[in-house]
């Protein structure tokens, strides 16, 4: 388990990791920079949101003008969501707001301490902020980006070439885990198990679901 996307990128490039879940624009950027990787599986949809302080002055997108917004990486869908939302409201992301890169686990603390005015991040951090009472979802990714996809599974090309069966097993396993999570009869129990796997509490998992 890593705490930030830049570290994942380095681990993948150095072959410490052979595969990685990462934000889609970062995978595209890696490929564009000549790093031999390939996207082999698309991740989830709609898990991201822009969150502001619950007692703050931001109540609509236009109120973000002049504010500081944390994003996981400049190569992230969460940054592009902010671009889209601001453009839809007649604003320019480069001129009207200040975006800072921050490791995902740090954003809730930064918002609680008013070090930032908002963050654009995937779950469970929007739920953490709302349950903590200091954050409020301003908008969800799907409101400005239908069919939004955040993370993708990236595999090194040499691994694909040498061990295609292992990569197929990995992809099949991830696909099956998605179906397992969606089993209606045991969905709640499965979500809690998954929450434990990523170190989150039951309340956060239930809220995020």
């Amino acid at each position: 388990m890593f705490q930030g996307f830049p570290e994942i990128k380095e681990a993948l490039m150095s072959n410490k990791m052979q595969a990685a879940f990462m934000v889609a624009p970062m995978a595209i950027a890696l490929r564009a920079q000549g790093v031999p990787v390939k996207i082999v599986y698309l991740g989830h949809r709609y898990g991201s949101a822009v969150v502001v302080r619950s007692d703050g002055p931001v109540h609509r997108v236009a109120d973000l003008r002049g504010r500081t917004i944390a994003i996981p990486s400049r190569f992230s869908d969460e940054r592009l969501i902010v671009f889209r939302a601001l453009a839809a409201n007649g604003m320019n992301a480069k001129k009207d707001v200040r975006m800072v890169e921050m490791a995902p686990p740090d954003v809730t603390g930064a918002l609680a301490a008013s070090a930032i005015d908002a963050f654009s991040m995937g779950e469970p951090f929007p739920s953490q902020a709302e349950i903590g009472g200091f954050g409020r979802v301003l908008f969800h990714a799907r409101q400005y980006w239908p069919d939004y996809i955040s993370c993708v599974l990236v595999v090194r090309q040499d691994v694909i070439d040498k061990r295609p069966e292992a990569v197929q097993t990995l992809v099949d396993g991830i696909a099956r885990s998605g179906l397992w999570l969606d089993e209606k009869e045991r969905a709640k129990r499965h979500r809690l198990l998954a929450a434990d796997f990523v170190g989150q509490g039951d309340d956060v998992a239930a809220h995020a679901a």
Binding site: Q18, F21, M121, G122, V155, G199, Q200
Partner: peptide
């Protein structure tokens, strides 16, 4: 041996 190794898959606890 490389052919028998488990793949290391990186992730962070965020969707």
């Amino acid at each position: 041996p490389e052919a028998q190794r488990k793949l290391n898959v990186a992730y962070i606890p965020v969707t």
